[in-house]
Computed example of a mutant assay.
Amino acid sequence: MAQHQVGDYEILEALGQGAAGIAYRARQVHTDEPVALKLLVDQVANDQAMQQRFVREASVAEKLDHPGIVRFRECGVHDGQLFIAMELVDSGSLDDVLAEGGALPWREACEVAAQACDALAHAHDRGVVHRDLKPANLFLTSDGQVKIGDFGLARDADRHRLTLDGQTVGTCRYMAPEQVRGDDQLTGAVDMYAIGCLLHMMTTNDCPFTGETVVEVFEHHLFTPAPALSCRCPNCPPALDKLVARLLAKEAADRPGATEARDTLQSIIEGREVAPLAVASEASRDEPIIEPNLTERLKANAKPAKPTVSTARLAAAAAVVAAIALVALLASRG
């Protein structure tokens, strides 16, 4: 991209690109604050339908004000080009964590989902359904906050739909059955189904339904009973197993709402049936304990373990080296 400034924003570097938009790290000139700046890619920049969808995405984001949702700053036009300025979230996404470290401990998975549900409760109360929840759309801050972003497929009940009736939208592995069918009247229950898929993904490193093709995945969402989480994550609490089963119910009416799911997840985290976390030793109880926040624990889980070599293997290697040296010595004397 040739230009280095869009409106009051100085473009610093590219953050990522989707099918229709590209996000940049930028700096708001008059405040010197970092922001995320989203622009339409050149291929669709002049497409009227995409421009309308871009503006609607901004209008949806503008009505949401919650610490668990990426904050909207402004939408504008610069030299005929639309842009959206958003809060810059600084510690990557859940997708990054899962790609680097695989499955999470169930406690951390519950914390991620509980924060997401709290944000969804705010959105659903305002008539906004996200419709595309997935690890790549859950962002992490350095202080342990999970933030939902990318409302590009969101449906706002107070405005025109952002997609055509009967059109299937969303990422296939996290889509509720009614989304797969392209039902007209979608509710917040589609986001709760996605939360069930996310919990399964976070704790097992696999989605509940997979397949060789999108059609095969869709058929599983529609007709295959959801696998019990406990079969793939044996150490998960029974209450979590039960909650995920409810979240993955085929009928939208059978799924819990965002507030109920959040409260249930919180009770699971704090519940008496769950083994308590390790207690500090007697020697350290007088010292203040600084617990790592959620993002720090997720990042620690993603770090690959350092390879270790057992004492037995070291001894065996040493014996091999000694034998080779002895053979060489004897050969030289012969």
Rank of each mutant, 00 (worst) to 15 (best):
L39N: 02
L40N: 01
L40E: 00
V41S: 00
D42F: 03
Q43P: 02
Q43M: 07
V44N: 10
A45T: 00
N46D: 13
N46V: 01
D47Y: 09
D47L: 10
Q48E: 14
Q48D: 11
A49Y: 08
A49V: 05
A49G: 10
A49Q: 13
M50Q: 12
R53F: 06
R53P: 05
V55Q: 14
R56C: 10
R56K: 11
E57V: 01
E57R: 05
A58C: 12
A58K: 04
V60D: 12
V60N: 12
A61Q: 12
A61N: 13
A61W: 00
E62R: 12
E62G: 10
K63N: 13
L64K: 05
H66A: 06
P67M: 14
P67D: 15
P67H: 15
P67K: 10
P67S: 13
I69Q: 08
V70E: 07
R71E: 12
R71F: 02
R71S: 13
R71D: 07
F72W: 08
F72I: 07
R73F: 09
R73H: 14
R73A: 12
R73E: 08
C75Y: 09
C75N: 09
C75F: 10
G76T: 03
H78S: 15
D79S: 09
D79T: 02
D79V: 03
D79M: 06
G80Q: 03
G80N: 03
Q81R: 15
Q81K: 13
Q81P: 02
Q81N: 11
F83N: 03
I84P: 03
A85I: 04
A85T: 08
A85H: 06
A85D: 08
M86D: 07
M86S: 14
M86C: 14
M86P: 09
M86F: 14
V89H: 08
V89W: 07
S91G: 09
S91V: 02
S91Q: 11
G92R: 02
G92A: 05
G92C: 06
S93E: 06
S93W: 01
L94W: 00
D96C: 05
D96N: 12
L98I: 15
L98K: 00
L98N: 01
A99I: 00
E100D: 11
G101M: 01
G102L: 02
A103I: 06
A103H: 07
A103C: 07
L104H: 01
L104N: 00
P105Y: 00
R107Y: 01
R107C: 06
